[in-house]
Design a protein around this nucleic acid. Structure first.
Lengths: 159, 159
DNA sequence: GGGTGATTGTCAGTGCTACTGACGATCAGC
DNA sequence: GCTGATCGTCAGTAGCACTGACAATCACCC
């Protein structure tokens, strides 16, 4: 009976002849595939700029905060500081950012844009925004904004 | 604190406190962290049952479709058939499912629940559903349902 | 001053997930 | 009976993110 209920809910969308795909309604499935799809679209959009989505995330934070330490960027993005090392390595190898020792605290590296790096960032950000727009294009504008709000709500539930 | 000092010096577009920070509004960030958080909550809820979220996904499909081949399950979940091998291996090692050669097509393995396996599945599914409910608890019921619909919409945009 | 504990960046190692490419066995159509 | 496709399997690989350790540095306290 529980299996029938699940089956019924999943089959709410009538099966078209050429599309035997029955959508799963589980949040794990939905979130995983949504993220996967956005990652693919973003990767394609960013490919001409030589950066990937994770690196762009770093650049967005850098643009917001201004020059700052690796640790601060990592905290803001909710990733580990050891993960940040390779990320900055890659961006520095592409001359998008530079590390420089902090004068006030010599344990820190200050990470900041190069001149050309900031130009590239602006272009890449536009491309990524366009990919996001295409990603949510099945939704009305209001629904797309609501999706963001809902995701923020479930994430920000921090205790 | 030092990050604020740097921020103040290098970038004075600091917003009012409490305003959503821009990078928190990027879909890549939102989806990644939403998925991460749900994965954690689901893992904790499923821990007593000895299965994880990916394995439960397999079981849900098995419950929906009845006994089927590994390939069919993989297709339904949108994962590779080579990935399915280890997944079924693990479930079989726990005696939740069994493989048996198909009579009609001897290339195939038919995967089906064991008796105790189906009981465990029902319990684990309840625990996972409860975790999902807690995950979306910051949202109204209607908003939570809308979230599912919106995610389905952006996923189903297949070309 | 000097000692103590915390912080920062780095690196090696590990775990998890999912893929590609290959293989033998088997099937379907001609 | 051939040929091409499908299924399950395995080895190898790649991306991502973590833990644990380390040296350098800082902040605090006596």
């Amino acid at each position: 009976m529980s299996s029938e209920a699940v089956n019924e809910a999943a089959n709410e969308v009538e099966n078209a002849p050429g599309q035997p795909r029955v959508e799963l309604n589980r949040l794990g499935y939905l979130l995983k595939h949504a993220q996967q799809r956005l990652t693919e679209m973003t990767a394609a959009a960013l490919e001409p700029y030589g950066v990937n989505g994770r690196e762009l995330g770093v650049l967005v934070v850098l643009d917001q905060m201004g020059a700052t330490s690796q640790q601060d960027v990592a905290r803001r993005l909710g990733i580990d500081r050891t993960t940040m090392v390779a990320l900055i390595d890659a961006l520095e190898a592409k001359s998008v950012v530079v590390r420089r020792p902090s004068a006030e605290d010599r344990r820190r590296n200050v990470v900041e844009f190069t001149e050309s790096g900031h130009g590239l960032f602006r272009q890449a950000l536009q491309a990524s925004d366009e990919a996001e727009r295409r990603f949510v294009s099945p939704l009305e504008d209001a629904a797309a904004e609501l999706l963001r709000e809902q995701l923020r709500a479930v994430i920000e539930e921090r205790d």
